[in-house]
Simulated scan of single mutants.
Amino acid sequence: MRIFITGAAGFIGFHLARRLLADGHTVTGYDGITDYYDPALKRARLAILAEHERFVLIEGMLEDAGRLRDGLAQSGAEVVLHLAAQAGVRYSLEQPQSYIQSNVVGTANLLEALRALPPRHLIFASTSSIYGGNTKVPFAETDRADGPVSLYAATKKSGEAMVHSYAHLFGIPSTCLRFFTVYGPWGRPDMALFKFASAMIEGRPIDVYGHGTMQRDFTYVADLVDVIAKIMDTPPEMGRPVEHDSLSAVAPFRVVNVAGGRQTELMDFIRAIEKAVGRTAQLNLLPMQPGDVVATHSDTTLLRELVGAVPETSVETGVGHFVEWYKSHYGWN
């Protein structure tokens, strides 16, 4: 199958492209390789993908509508996986325009290109941050999600709404996947696992927000990729959804949570890193940051109905794989 992945140099995009290439697909990656974090890490990921003869990279920004449209046409994609975005809750307080341009304008540019080049399935990477201040847990796809507490979440909610409108107007089968705290090897330097592990390895203290009381539904990246590879073959069809299904009644559109379905205390996560690193963390306990939420927890009922059994890598195992990669990649013994 011919697949087009935006954000192929990113953390999840890289893992997904590598998995799909291994499965025998042809992958065209589209990425702007921005400097939000070290571009050398993105280049290192791309160097691995470039070893596959069925991988093609097109460098370009989502905001460049012409280049995006031409790249999509060149790929002849049957499935489009839209992962590229300006990520991070906290950075949206500093650079809001980058979120508007990438996540809103960029997504609109892609959708416009898909009007002329409709795929068999569009998958849009969304986020659990969309649930915002919801107090009902676990979060279900049919819950209202109209109270985002960060601009990042608001732009992703906007993306979901735009994807739905194009699914309705132009019949593009579309699935929005709400990711829950994805972690693993080759992760982003701005994410907690990367920050905590590097600080422990180097003997520096770590900043722990919310005084360590936060809970997260962690998702190991290989488990996430396995789900996406399966759900690619399940494009939604317009119809009458059952009670717990998020299937739209007016469009071939569905929202699906992707997570392990269990909560982990932040301090337990830190203890798993300590065990993998072999050092005790120096904790700098701080209050919650603006835009953050206390807890996330996913209802995975719909996900399991769509793809069957979902791999569930334990936090201890997943963190161990990350620390092994980190030490190898950065030369720590």
Rank of each mutant, 00 (worst) to 15 (best):
D245A: 11
T296V: 05
D233Q: 12
T313D: 10
W186G: 01
G212A: 03
R204A: 14
V208R: 08
R204T: 01
R204Q: 15
G210W: 04
L114A: 07
D64M: 05
R54G: 04
T264D: 07
L286S: 11
F124P: 00
H25I: 03
A85F: 03
G13V: 04
V255H: 05
A8I: 02
A17W: 00
L49E: 04
M162A: 13
E112A: 13
P148K: 06
T107D: 05
V242P: 01
A65F: 01
T296S: 15
A197S: 15
T26P: 00
E94V: 04
I123N: 10
A108V: 02
A295L: 12
T155N: 02
D146S: 12
R204C: 06
L224K: 02
G106Y: 02
A65G: 05
R120F: 00
L16G: 08
L114M: 13
G318Y: 08
G29A: 09
H211V: 00
P185L: 11
F4Y: 14
R45I: 00
I33E: 11
R240T: 15
P205S: 08
A192C: 07
R69E: 15
R2S: 14
P118E: 13
T175V: 08
E160V: 02
E316G: 01
D207E: 14
E94G: 01
R254F: 03
H121C: 10
V315C: 03
A167R: 08
N109F: 03
A281R: 06
A22T: 11
F194R: 10
D190Q: 12
A8W: 01
V323E: 11
E94L: 12
Q263C: 01
G239R: 08
M288H: 13
Y152F: 13
A145I: 02
R120D: 12
H168T: 07
D35V: 02
S150R: 07
D31F: 04
A229E: 08
R115P: 01
M200K: 12
Q289D: 13
H164N: 04
L41D: 11
S165L: 14
V225P: 06
R115F: 01
R279D: 07
P118V: 10
R43N: 10
T234W: 01
G210M: 06
S102V: 09
D35R: 14
V149D: 10
P173Q: 13
L41H: 11
D233N: 13
Q74S: 12
E63Q: 14
A140K: 15
A8T: 13
A116W: 03
R45N: 15
F4R: 09
F180T: 09
Y91M: 07
E316S: 09
M162P: 00
V319D: 07
S92F: 01
R216S: 09
I58M: 11
S298F: 07
D299P: 08
E141S: 12
L177F: 05
V293E: 12
S75D: 05
E141M: 09
Q289G: 03
F218Q: 06
I48H: 10
D38H: 09
K136G: 02
A87V: 09
R2G: 02
P173I: 09
A199S: 15
A113M: 09
A229D: 12
